[in-house]
Nucleic acid binder design. Structure first.
Length: 294
DNA sequence: TTAAATGTTTAAAT
DNA sequence: CATTTAAACATTTA
C-alpha cells in the first residue's frame, strides 16, 4: 500500500525527529527483514533521510574518530511495511507511517515487528505484516550502484512529455502497465496510476503506443498532479478496512480517490453518467469509467 | 477452499 | 538483445 506520497510523508515526519540521534542497538526479529550486519551502524549518528522512488535512504556516520566512511540504511516498505517511532517518554508522541493497520496503535513490539532500532531518544520499529519489505545497510559505493539502476521518479523534473512519449511509443502493453513499470518510471503505484488515467481520460487497457503526444502530455500532467496531491494530503490511509483510525494518524488522500476503490460508484467527472468498473490488468485491480476513459 | 490484495524482483518465454 | 509474461515472495481476509 505505501506509495511514493506515503513514503515521502514518513520521510518528512521522521526527518524532523530522528536527525542527530545515534543508534544504540539494532534487534532483528526476522532475518529476512534485515540485509547486512547491524554491527555496521551501531553507534552511528543519523545525518539525513532521503527518498528515491518508494525507498528511504538514511545516511549515517560513525562517530568513532578515524572512521570517515558513511553508510546508508535503506528501507523499503513494499506492500505492508510500517515505520513507527516513539520516544522513551511513551506513547503520546508517536509517529506512524506506511501500511495502516492496528499496529499503528498497538503496544510495540507486536507480532508484525521485524526490526527494532533503539535510538538515543526513542525507538524506531520496522513492522511488516507480509515480510516483503526490508532494511538494508550499504556503503556509499553500493548505494551509487543501486541508485544508478533506478529510473527517475514521476515528480522529478527530468520526466518530461518527451521522456514519457519515448517510453510509451516503444510498448504495446496496456498504458497502465507502462506507467507502473518501476524499471522505467519510479513512484507510480496502483492507486495513483488508476487516478491519473481517469484524470487524463485514458482507458487503462489502451495500448501504450496508440497514445498521441497530446494524450501523453495530459497523462504526464495528471500523474504529477495526483502524486503531488497525495504528498500534500500526507498520503492515503486505506488498505485495511477493519482498521479504524481513532487517533488522527494517517493521510487524507483516500478522501479524494478519483477511481480507486470506487467500483459501482458514479464517475466523478462533471456531466459524466458513467459508473466506475473494476477489471484486472497485470494482476492489479484497475478502476476506470467506461464512459469517459477512451 | 480458493482467490485476491499489494510492490518489486527474478526467471522464463517470446 | 529488448520486450513481455508469469511466478515468486508472506500473510491475512473476503
Amino acid at each position: 500500500m505505501p506509495e511514493l506520497p506515503e513514503v515521502e510523508t514518513v520521510k518528512r515526519q521522521l526527518t524532523a525527529v530522528l536527525i542527530g540521534q545515534s543508534i544504540k542497538s539494532v534487534k532483528v526479529l526476522r532475518d529476512k527483514s534485515f540485509i547486512g550486519s547491524p554491527q555496521e551502524v551501531i553507534g552511528s549518528e543519523l545525518i539525513s533521510i532521503n527518498r528515491k522512488g518508494k525507498m528511504l535512504v538514511i545516511e549515517v556516520r560513525s562517530k568513532e574518530t578515524g572512521v570517515k566512511e558513511e553508510k546508508f540504511i535503506l528501507i523499503h516498505l513494499k506492500m505492508t511495511g510500517q515505520l513507527i517511532y516513539q520516544t522513551h517518554n511513551g506513547d503520546s508522541d508517536r509517529i506512524v507511517g506506511g501500511h495502516p493497520n492496528n499496529s499503528w496503535t498497538n503496544q510495540l513490539p507486536d507480532s508484525h515487528t521485524r526490526v527494532i532500532i533503539e535510538l538515543s531518544e526513542g525507538t524506531l520499529f520496522f513492522n511488516d505484516q507480509r515480510v516483503f519489505g526490508w532494511v538494508k545497510v550499504v556503503t556509499t559505493k553500493e548505494l551509487e550502484v543501486i541508485l544508478s539502476k533506478m529510473p527517475p521518479d514521476i515528480i522529478d523534473p527530468e520526466v518530461t512529455t518527451e521522456f514519457l512519449y519515448t517510453l510509451v511509443k516503444r510498448s504495446n502493453r496496456p498504458i497502465k502497465l507502462v506507467i507502473m513499470d518501476s524499471s522505467r518510471l519510479g513512484g507510480v503505484g496502483n492507486i495513483y496510476a488508476n487516478d491519473a488515467l481517469w484524470d487524463a481520460g485514458i482507458h487503462p487497457y489502451r495500448k501504450a503506443n496508440t497514445l498521441t503526444k497530446v494524450e501523453t502530455k495530459r497523462l504526464l500532467e495528471s500523474m504529477k498532479k495526483v502524486v503531488n496531491l497525495g504528498i500534500e494530503l500526507g498520503g492515503a490511509t486505506a488498505a485495511d478496512r477493519k482498521f479504524v483510525n481513532t487517533q488522527g494518524f494517517g493521510g487524507k488522500y483516500q478522501d479524494f480517490f478519483l477511481t480507486y476503490e470506487r467500483r459501482g460508484l458514479a464517475c466523478k467527472r462533471e456531466d459524466c453518467s458513467g459508473v466506475i468498473e473494476k477489471i484486472s490488468i497485470g494482476g492489479r485491480g484497475s478502476y476506470f469509467c467506461p464512459v469517459c476513459q477512451k
